[in-house]
Design a protein around this nucleic acid. Structure first.
Lengths: 231, 231
DNA sequence: GCTTGAATTATTGTATACAATTTGTATACA
DNA sequence: TGTATACAAATTGTATACAATAATTCAAGC
């Protein structure tokens, strides 16, 4: 009845990845070898190999003699993030438009359908993962092995930052999310039309949107009430 | 007398890294666990961990059930390389100029001194490694964790491509290498002056030089002899 | 009461034994 | 002669035992 070890290992990896992307495992949190090997029915050897794989992809950090912990997400990284993201995403979008196969375009449409569906459910975790999936596909489309590593790391923290600076919207889907959805649609159109410039420009728009979202979180719109009023 | 295992492990990693960068281990060549664990006095467990670390950094590839082999270097990767390199190196140079500490600038000067020294010795392997070291330092200076992963992968293949397309020069140091040396000096000056634009422009020049070198290798200058002449 | 330091405990790192998979080889058959 | 299949050998993956290292506790001294 028990699945082969190979499967258990990838189940563990997938589990940790989603936990990290959705911030269920917080940055800096450390991973307990004993507990996880117990929980997933793996001995420590393959478990530690999984940790190393995740470290190579940037999900966790391995400190000698002190085990693995979830990668940091500091103010410094936030700054670096918004510096690097427009350039890398722009390059990925441009290359995606130039190189995407028809099969990949179908995958992107599937991803977008899942994203739109997630918008309806109001499940912010599902939404973030669906968005992550969408951009992962654009990365596959671009297919440049030198740009991909940086892009993947950006995707990790894109998801985590989105969760951090997400504020639940009172009623219906927020304007920001509707814009994001429309931008995704425009990206698909640009890629399908092989219009690299348009795709790159859309990447910029997408980042403007992300920056705005965070700014409005840090500096919320002033309440429309006179000072000192009691509710 | 035997050193602690921790050291043996890093010795192994360093050894493999230099072997791969200098093409002593060729792309696609596979690494023998048994032989290496024997040679470096390590059991297979830490050895396999080292393989995974190197895989995460892009030196080797791990194929399930079939061990590790040195990362590929195909025509496709060559194309991708020259597409990505100017953008990434430009960004690194720009950020290096903006963020380098004085201590790091000293390190860069040390690296350049070593590079110049290697030019004199006519040892192409030492030269390539010294050049690699120089650019590694610029990466540290930039200090952007999102751009670094792609930059590191470019550095690996920068070294390997240089070795591949290097043609020994008849007498003295080749013009290309002298130009490269001068560009390095200019980079140091730009970084020290905090001139990000100049630093970025120098990255472009550096790439033009690399492209020229490869083009002259692929398309050698025509021999100045009439057809059919006998030597 | 706080700091320092030794002893204890917990956790991480390595080695080895065993299981599972893949690869190579020889033989049978078309 | 070429292909398929069964067996053998080699290699890779996992589990567990042991060693080394880091963290914690508790007591003694300042």
């Amino acid at each position: 009845m028990t699945k082969p070890a190979k499967d258990r290992k990838s189940v563990l990896s997938d589990h940790l990845i989603t936990q990290i992307l959705t911030m269920a495992l917080k940055p800096g949190e450390d991973l307990d070898e004993a507990a996880l090997s117990d929980a997933f029915g793996l001995s420590r050897t393959p478990l530690r190999e999984a940790f190393r794989d995740l470290a190579g992809q940037g999900y966790v950090e391995l400190r000698a003699g002190r085990g693995a912990r979830v990668s940091d997400l500091s103010y410094k990284t936030l700054h670096d993030f918004f510096l690097a993201a427009p350039m890398i995403y722009g390059a990925i979008q441009r290359l995606a438009a130039e190189n995407a196969t028809l099969a990949q375009i179908d995958l992107l449409k599937d991803a977008q359908r899942a994203f739109v569906k997630a918008l309806d459910t109001n499940d912010s975790v599902a939404r973030s993962l669906a968005n992550n999936r969408f951009h992962q596909v654009t990365g596959e489309m671009a297919g440049n092995i030198y740009i991909l590593p940086s892009f993947q790391r950006l995707l990790i923290d894109h998801a985590r930052i989105s969760v951090t600076f997400y504020r639940p919207h009172p009623a219906g889907t927020s304007e920001t999310l509707i814009k994001a959805r429309d931008q995704h649609d425009a990206m698909i159109a640009a890629i399908e039309a092989r219009d690299a410039n348009a795709a790159a420009a859309l990447a910029d728009d997408h980042w403007q949107l992300s920056r705005d979202q965070i700014q409005s979180f840090v500096m919320p719109a002033a309440l429309d009430l006179p000072m000192g009023s009691t509710s």
